[in-house]
């Protein structure tokens, strides 16, 4: 039996029928064709599927699609506004804070959720916010630098 749900994603209202066992990640990728969020483990261990739900960074592989009912979701595709990049996206490019780019959408969304609730985070708070986001390429330092730089711009 499918459930009928309504939610907002990247500012757009969506109405969908979803299977009860479908994950939010699968719904976003398969039903909405928003493939920015990635599946790295499907078990809440890597953060590559991170999206923002009602202001909080969540592992979308660990949340059921039906739970999205009534919620407001932001994915990496919703970060840039009218072709203007978010400060985080700019600073990730400037700091070479991405290599293969596979962790990048998740990393950006964890960072975005942090800056939404705390525009002036300390280095410790930044590290805490991305503690669940694995990156095999960069060594993390440049990612922390990029988030710091974006936070400075915010202020």
């Amino acid at each position: 039996m499918k459930h009928s749900i309504s939610f907002t994603i990247n500012g757009e209202k969506v109405h969908l029928e979803v299977e009860p066992h479908k994950t939010l990640l699968n719904m976003i990728r398969e039903d909405l064709n928003l493939t920015g969020a990635k599946e790295g483990c499907g078990a809440g261990e890597c953060g590559s599927c991170t999206v923002i739900v009602d202001g909080k960074a969540v592992n979308s592989c660990m949340m059921l699609a039906v739970e999205a009912d009534g919620k407001e979701i932001i994915t990496v595709e919703g970060l840039a506004k009218n072709g203007v990049l978010d400060a985080l996206q700019e600073s990730f490019i400037n700091n070479a804070a991405l290599q293969c780019g596979y962790c990048t959408p998740g990393m950006l969304m964890s960072a975005k959720a942090l800056l939404m609730r705390n525009p002036k985070p300390s280095e410790e708070e930044i590290k805490e916010a991305i503690a669940g986001n694995l990156c095999r390429c960069t060594g993390y330092k440049v990612i922390v630098d990029a988030i710091k730089e974006a936070a400075e711009k915010n202020n």
């Binding site: 990496v76 840039a80 985080l88 490019i93 991405l98 780019g101 990048t104």
Partner: peptide, 21 residues
């Protein structure tokens, strides 16, 4: 020089194999 693939990657636009349908 800034990465030429940076923009596609930070916008989630880059299509990896599993993204292709």
């Amino acid at each position: 020089v800034k990465r030429v693939d940076g923009l596609d990657k930070v916008t989630g636009y880059t299509k990896y194999v599993d993204d292709i349908k």
